[in-house]
């Protein structure tokens, strides 16, 4: 029982890392980013590459890859996505364009990644057992969990307490209304998209310390992130975290108590049930 709680919590930390970035990108900047998983893989590749070629600790990689990803994602938004945002007359049109464009980007990033490393990003970092209230787990998962919590908490406090955070939330509620009260919507959107990309890349660095990834596996994380964001309700950080918690705990519980073969099926079933009873996700707002 304790095992389920501990493993489940740690797994939900992973999921939160995967989903928080996309939540900002979709919830605020309105970009359904299908290249989200590939950005995560870029972070993982950087971590693997620096660790295996020059023994740089992933924790150090984290420190400089996060701002680097912020800059790259800001540039992507500014130069590749802004034209689409400008020309889109409706949210639906933007959704269609961003699906097409980011799907293209995901291919480009896969191409770049496999030309650097076509095989598995296999390395081991902090692969040491550690006992938490009687349940054994690995240090690398624990470290990732702690950092995920820190990122989540910082994000939540910033969104709710700071001026700029409030602006971001205002944009996520309504771009028109936010524009009317004098918020620079394009700037806030670009910032949110870049921040989302930075968090995703940080997630990639951390996840690569305990999951063996390869250049083509990004789509798996994109799918998971989409599921979690939608389950939690678009644009709500709490929602994404609660959804990540539910999935982590359900998967671990099913794997331990019923059959590991059903873990992913159970996770998707949970997602489906949530949407059946709450069509706008756990914390979503009813569309007006």
């Amino acid at each position: 029982m304790l095992d389920i709680v501990v493993s489940g919590l740690l797994l939900s930390g992973t999921y939160a890392l995967v989903a928080m970035g996309l939540n900002l990108q979709y919830g605020v900047a309105r970009i359904m980013n299908l290249a989200n998983g590939e950005i995560l893989i870029l972070g993982a590749l950087a971590s693997f590459w620096f660790y295996t070629t020059s023994q740089v600790s992933p924790l150090l990689t984290l420190v400089f890859i996060t701002p680097a990803s912020f800059v790259v994602n800001w540039l992507i938004y500014r130069f590749l996505l802004t034209p689409l945002v400008r020309r889109a007359k409706t949210q639906g049109a933007l959704e269609v364009d961003s699906i097409l464009a980011t799907f293209g980007m995901s291919f480009i990033i896969i191409g770049i990644v496999v030309s650097i490393e076509g095989g598995f990003f296999a390395y081991n970092f902090l692969l040491d057992p550690i006992s938490i209230i009687g349940s054994t787990t690995s240090l690398n998962r624990l470290v990732a969990f702690v950092i995920a919590c820190a990122i989540g908490l910082a994000l939540y406090l910033w969104l709710n307490l700071s001026r700029s955070g409030v602006a971001v939330r205002a944009v996520s509620v309504s771009t028109e209304a936010a524009g009317l009260v004098g918020i620079n919507v394009p700037r806030v959107s670009a910032f949110a998209f870049a921040l989302g990309g930075a968090i995703t890349a940080a997630g990639g660095v951390l996840i690569s310390t305990f999951i063996t990834l390869d250049g083509s596996i990004g789509v798996v994380f994109t799918l998971k992130a989409l599921i979690i964001v939608i389950m939690g309700g678009v644009g709500d950080v709490r929602g994404a975290i609660v959804a990540a918690l539910i999935l982590g705990l359900v998967e671990t519980a099913v794997a331990t108590l019923i059959d590991p073969g059903l873990t992913l099926a159970a996770a998707y079933l949970m997602f489906i049930l949530v949407l059946l009873f709450r069509p706008e996700g756990l914390f979503g707002r009813r569309a007006t």
């Binding site: 493993s7 797994l11 998971k224 671990t252 059959d259 590991p260 992913l264």
Partner: peptide, 13 residues
Amino acid sequence: KSYPLGTPDLSPV
């Protein structure tokens, strides 16, 4: 037991 391809956490297994 089996586990699905792409299981992120094999610790329960």
